[in-house]
Design a protein around this nucleic acid. Structure first.
Lengths: 228, 228
DNA sequence: TAGTGGTCTAGACCACTAA
DNA sequence: TAGTGGTCTAGACCACTAA
């Protein structure tokens, strides 16, 4: 978590980042105005502006004149790799989304919740999901009713993460996956495996099996990350 | 190409960006020092610094004290989605890379080169590639011998792009693909389709068919894009 | 050692917009 | 209309490093 403190603006930015990442400042929280931060650190406003502008560029806060600087809702993928909430995606293309939780259990002597569930489009199974959520990092997840709430949607709305790792591969569906998705054994599936961290703590680990004939991923971006 | 000129630093940044994108300033070119740009625009150094620092953050230039600011080599994916040059990837994991061009032709009355080729790891076909390169945007590509040079590697070293779009999907290999990859028909393949632009011009369009059992994609990133 | 960029100051004026 | 952030100035000192 510790940032390099070599420069003042980096320290200010790091301090604010820490407040947000630890959850002390939740989404919607109004960050003190520049002149106040400036007094607190005994520095000029340009230095504060450099720090907070960087946070705005990276999407952690949003800034508005008069209304001030507000902690932003955690983005799922910062618009870089678009693997948004599947329910939104299905609804965006005019389908009817439904959810079915197949199996719930506690693992690792209660430290981890395991969820196996299906996501449907117009009543057809589109994706099988197997997910672990680590309660050490996200204790609130212990109380959530994942029988009715898709875990991905819940996490997206409640948890800020600092790093994610994806592995995308193609597999032929074997028995269990084929049965749940209702496809013949051997059918091509797109498999997305994702691990997400907050600082040093693993938040969640998920494997998603998409029907290859009904789903693909897309990503669009520029190398220059135009930030204004 | 035109940038919003609302502020001076955005204008300066846009002017330099244009020099790089049009190829007037090639990789390795030394950008005039801040004090010179400052005189040219009749502004203060802070304003110039803001403009050029933004370009450095986005990877278009790299900055060094004393050595000055240098136009950077075009990055392939800015480290966000790692689909690097496949030859590097194979060599990185200790394999021997080889390349075979299967088919070359001109399309669209000579405006477009089409290449179909295979990429091998240790003599085993790992990926089939079908690519179009649009000579309108990249006339130099007309002279390149793609019989011996993998087009992806050549483009990576010679072309700056502004936007890329990916589609990643899973398919069962049908006849042609299965034959070239040497796998049974119906085998799961990971298909990556990519379009790349420079400004309004399409540079290249490629479809890559990876053997699902031998390859996956990975991406690792943070939502905050830590830029220092 | 001389030129470069990195950082910072202590001001200033202004655009925007919620109250 | 009052508070906020966006931009800009004209300086300053310093760290780094290629020549």
């Amino acid at each position: 978590m510790a940032e390099i403190l070599s420069t003042l603006h980096a320290r200010i930015r790091g301090d604010i980042e820490a407040k947000i990442m630890t959850g002390a400042w939740r989404p919607g929280f109004v960050v003190p105005p520049e002149h106040e931060i400036m007094l607190h650190y005994g520095c000029s406003r340009m230095t504060v502006n450099k720090a907070v502008s960087a946070l705005a560029r990276s999407g952690l806060v949003s800034r508005n004149r008069r209304a001030g600087t507000v902690v932003a809702k955690p983005p799922l993928h910062a618009g870089v790799l678009q693997i948004p909430d599947i329910s939104h995606e299905i609804e965006a293309r005019g389908g009817v989304y439904s959810y079915n939780c197949i199996h719930l259990e506690l693992r690792n002597s209660g430290q981890c919740r395991f969820i196996r569930c299906l996501h449907f489009e117009d009543g057809v199974a589109l994706m099988l999901e197997e997910r672990e959520i680590f309660l050490h990092a996200i204790p609130e997840a212990g109380q959530v009713d994942f029988k009715s709430t898709p875990p991905g949607s819940w996490l997206m709305d409640h948890v800020a993460w600092t790093q994610a790792e994806h592995r995308i591969s193609a597999h032929s569906a074997e028995g269990t996956v084929a049965r749940h998705l209702g496809v013949p054994v051997g059918k091509a599936c797109l498999v997305v495996e994702r691990k997400t961290w907050r600082g040093p703590d693993t938040i969640t680990h998920v494997q998603q099996f998409f029907r290859g004939d009904k789903f693909d991923l897309s990503a669009r971006f520029s190398p220059t990350l135009p930030d204004c």
